[in-house]
Design a protein around this nucleic acid. Sequence first.
DNA 1: ATAATTCAGGATATGTTTGTCCGGAATTGT
DNA 2: ACAATTCCGGACAAACATATCCTGAATTAT
Lengths: 144, 144
Amino acid sequence: MFSKTCEYAFRATVVVATASKNGERLTLADIAERTAAPTAFTAKVLQDLVRAGVLTSRRGPNGGFDLPPLAARKVNLRMIMAAVGDGDLDTTCVMGLRECRASEPCPLHYEFVKVKDELARVLDSTYVHGLVDALNNGTTHLKR
Amino acid sequence: MFSKTCEYAFRATVVVATASKNGERLTLADIAERTAAPTAFTAKVLQDLVRAGVLTSRRGPNGGFDLPPLAARKVNLRMIMAAVGDGDLDTTCVMGLRECRASEPCPLHYEFVKVKDELARVLDSTYVHGLVDALNNGTTHLKR
DNA sequence: ATAATTCAGGATATGTTTGTCCGGAATTGT
DNA sequence: ACAATTCCGGACAAACATATCCTGAATTAT
């Protein structure tokens, strides 16, 4: 459903936000380990997230990445996707046609309206801060 | 949302079924033109569809591909996706975790339940024959 | 039988995504 | 100032998706 890059971005963002809430700042190595993702590639993903303003980074000793609780209230899934260039999942035609809209629909246009609407709702309304508590108290997990 | 291969497969299947309903049998060249897809690649996609039993083919003069109305009542989107190896869109974890289920959910598991359920419903309940009429009477289109 | 047509399928090419490697720049603590 | 740490960003490599080409096999009409 999402590209691997996007999956890594989701995992990394949640992991960083969770640590930040506990006052920890995570290094690239920390993040790669906790998300079970390749380190060098994770570096690229984190770079994208920082450039897009999703995470903040600091270099040097005690450096690393963070996403403080207040900022985590303003980051939703859509922004994470956009940061890695995956932003228009729910807006492109499922049959790959450019000329597809309500007035000139492809054969599958109306079939997918509800799917896309629900997807858009989730991407726009799911904020990182809401995911952090569940991870912290063990309701959800990220292993593997 | 879907791979290009899958988009081509959707378009090709609908085009063939629509022609079959009018008693026409379409050649590879016909299909590639009507779906605005590359010919040689379309050949591969059609091969997959035939192997999976979605379409039937015949070689030689007056050969080509078809999907008669009766058969089109039994082909849904899920089968087309499976034919090109894209079958598990709605069953894999959105964060890329193998260990993700209701009892051990990833942080996004419950957020996507409705999306996935609705997607599964559409993939399973959308049959090709239902798409043909709309294309025939101009309610929907496939241009570009 | 023969020639024309059309699909089948292997080999190959191109492009994109995913993944690695390394030197440099910034920051920190001493 | 210096050394250690850590992110930044470019270059490169591998894997996969997409796309092309060509030969052969099946079918049909003559």
